[in-house]
Design a protein around this nucleic acid. Structure first.
Lengths: 228, 228
DNA sequence: TCTTTGCAAAATATCTACATTTTTAAAAAA
DNA sequence: TTTTTTAAAAATGTAGATATTTTGCAAAGA
């Protein structure tokens, strides 16, 4: 009964490649040489091309016919466009969630906010980054889930995938700064309060602010690294 | 200079498969047998798996590990969710477009509205459907483009891909009915007028109405065909 | 009799290795 | 320099090997 359902290799190749692209192991614009990938991930071309095709569909990789694959480029212009799009979409979704969310929705938000606030620097900083990010995503995910539309949430996921590489730059700066973390914690608490009060316009405004704060920081990091 | 840039086979496999799924050649839920696909599209498994991987990323196909691929199911519940999501997202985008669109935007809308209104039943009805649909999409695309956000438009494209199968059911009913076409033509004209007047709340309301009209018709078709 | 179980055969999905085509680079010629 | 030629590198496609799932059928159990 527990044969640990063997995944096909394409699926794990996809997960590993995506993770490495987001973390900058494969930087923006890098040529993804089949021979390198085969060696690095110990896979044949078949599964790799499957994984790359999916990443192309997600716009994290671009394919040039007969010339292989490349990590999608990054730019400050794109950074700004993604965050702009996210702010608007997230605003729409939160508005719907406030109109449609039920008691279970509220309870879930409280639960996720609690676990997020309790993240402590117990193990190494690398671990810390993972845990904080996971719980942070879960918290915002719980808020968005209230909109009740699978397809709006799907669109939101798409933008999340796009922003991940930029957000990773920010995470590395932020998670290790306890004052930045403390500031976020306060924002989250205020957000929960406004959500429970179902104050739509207030929440919209707060979410927007909250979402956009990383932008100047990321812009700075990108300039420092010459990624503009 | 014009070597007609050879595409890799995966790309054309993707286009053909997608088209056939949207048109119902491969109905919802159908098992996509490799041997059948190889025969039908005259391709090896490699390019086919590439194409299928992309379609999986777009949620038009679902993959079950070691058990191959299946056309994603359809349901009335999904129909309603997609249209709901679309109505909200399109509303958001149009609002932004009204705030941000310039003169070129207005001009492009007028141009596209004109070509759409001029579609005549010159050749066969099959051809007619293609042309009307293409111009209809171009018209609404021109309106949305005004929002100026590549990533919001990308999210919109994603929903369009999702809805395409349902919309195809509707198109077949509508395009051959000249009164339905005439009704649409009036809606479009009114929409253009309100857009040029930059009456955001009016446009939002109209777009929503315009977008949702197909839903009851499609629901009917689905029931008739036992796709509920 | 009807249902369940076990097994082997067939069908199917998946992967790899190699053949083919195309691009890139390097060297030679103009 | 600029162009042409040539060799190496890389991408792409196919055929066949391997592993997995499904199916058909018979025997056991209810």
């Amino acid at each position: 009964m527990e044969h640990s359902a063997r995944q096909n290799l394409g699926v794990s190749a996809y997960a590993r490649l995506k993770r490495d692209i987001i973390r900058g192991v494969h930087p923006a614009g890098e040529k993804l040489l089949m021979s390198n990938l085969r060696q690095r991930y110990d896979l044949g071309t078949g599964p790799l091309r499957e994984a790359l095709s999916q990443l192309v569909a997600e716009h994290l990789v671009v394919a040039i016919s007969q010339r292989g694959y490349r990590v999608a480029p990054m730019s400050v212009a794109e950074l700004e466009d993604i965050y702009d799009a996210r702010a608007h979409l997230e605003g729409l979704i939160v508005e719907l969630a406030i109109a449609r969310g039920d008691d279970a929705w509220e309870a879930d938000i409280l639960a996720k906010a609690h676990t997020l606030a309790k993240v402590m620097d117990v193990s190494g900083p690398e671990e810390m980054l993972d845990i904080w990010d996971r719980r942070h995503q879960a918290f915002h995910g719980a808020i968005a889930a209230g909109c009740g539309s699978r397809h709006l949430l799907q669109a939101r996921e798409g933008l999340l995938d796009q922003v991940e590489r930029y957000r990773h730059l920010w995470l590395c700066e932020t998670v290790f700064s306890s004052e930045a973390l403390e500031y976020k914690r306060q924002e989250h608490a205020a957000l929960v309060e406004a959500l429970l009060a179902r104050d739509a316009s207030e929440v919209c405004h707060m979410i927007r602010e909250h979402l956009m704060t990383p932008v100047p920081i990321i812009r700075e990091v990108m300039k420092r690294r010459g990624l503009e």
